[in-house]
Amino acid sequence: MGERKVTVAAEVGLHARPAATFVQRAKQAPMDIAVAKAHGGDPVNGKSILAIMGLDVRQGETVVISAEGEGSEEVLDELAEIAGKP
């Protein structure tokens, strides 16, 4: 299982445009994507914009993105870049 730890840099946190871009990319991936806050909390479906918004990740908070299977490393790299973009 691959993992990426990312600190969210966008001023709005993982909401609005960053959340939509993240989910749009995640939906293209064939495997499941999970997102959790680094400091506890259950992982949520990375393809669900409502679940991602419900996590309420603010600027400066760290999330863990995980995925498994063929091509998952590439997907994780892209998702980490989106989540970490200011």
Binding site: R17, A19, A20, V23, N45, S48, I49, L50, A51
Partner: peptide, 16 residues
């Protein structure tokens, strides 16, 4: 456009 596209994602949200 961005707002409405995010809303479109919500309408088809897998959890929902």
């Amino acid at each position: 456009e961005e707002i409405l596209k995010a809303q479109a994602l919500m309408a088809e949200d897998p959890g929902l």
